[in-house]
Design a protein around this nucleic acid. Sequence first.
DNA 1: ATATCATTTAGACACATGTCGAAGCAGGAG
DNA 2: CTCCTGCTTCGACATGTGTCTAAATGATAT
Lengths: 112, 112
Amino acid sequence: MTATTGACCAPIAREPLTEHDAAELATLLKAVADPVRLRLLSMIGSHAGGEACVCDLTDAFDLTAPTISHHLKVLRTAGLIDGERRGTWVYYRVVPETVSRLGALFTPLVTV
Amino acid sequence: MTATTGACCAPIAREPLTEHDAAELATLLKAVADPVRLRLLSMIGSHAGGEACVCDLTDAFDLTAPTISHHLKVLRTAGLIDGERRGTWVYYRVVPETVSRLGALFTPLVTV
DNA sequence: ATATCATTTAGACACATGTCGAAGCAGGAG
DNA sequence: CTCCTGCTTCGACATGTGTCTAAATGATAT
């Protein structure tokens, strides 16, 4: 990668998005455009060991378990997190590639 | 390519967001979590001269003028674009600081 | 097998959001 | 002034979304 670029601005401001790309990116952005999901993503990513149990997450909110489960599903469907069951508990961890994809959209290329 | 050294991860995955920060960021993200607004932002930012007339934007969509105006207002309220009337036409341009703020959230620190 | 705990699914409901048509404002042109 | 054009605001409507309760599934222990 490392497109030569004039580093003028973020990719989103460099050339017009196609209708298709815009639709795809919007679904990704919708997944993070919610305060609860934003905190969930943040809590999972910053948790020791890189993963967090659902039980840890649920306790941090004033919401019911089904609601948290719903939000986790949205994040997982968007490819932002990945879940795995180990015994009694389910553990989630973030998928950094997808997170970076979001960042790249709005970040001016700092090609060193 | 972005130097992925020392930096472990994006800010959002470094430490848990506070409830307050999450709410604030979510409103910003909601503003861009729509395919039409994503394209509008992209078209304005990549337009020659750094600004675009509403008339140019409206023609690019299969939507009515009120709908485009509504989306522009959402972007402007979020601080992502700034509009100004000059004579007959209204011109919009992006506010790079706000766009960068979004990018920084999801981008691993580039150790420059 | 039964009980119990952790998580997800299903169904329902209130509220937010994207879209439209109609009407209102602002600025030029005749 | 009156018209016309560009853009925004208003009000209404259908659809989408966040939340809940109730019930289902999975896994472990008794």
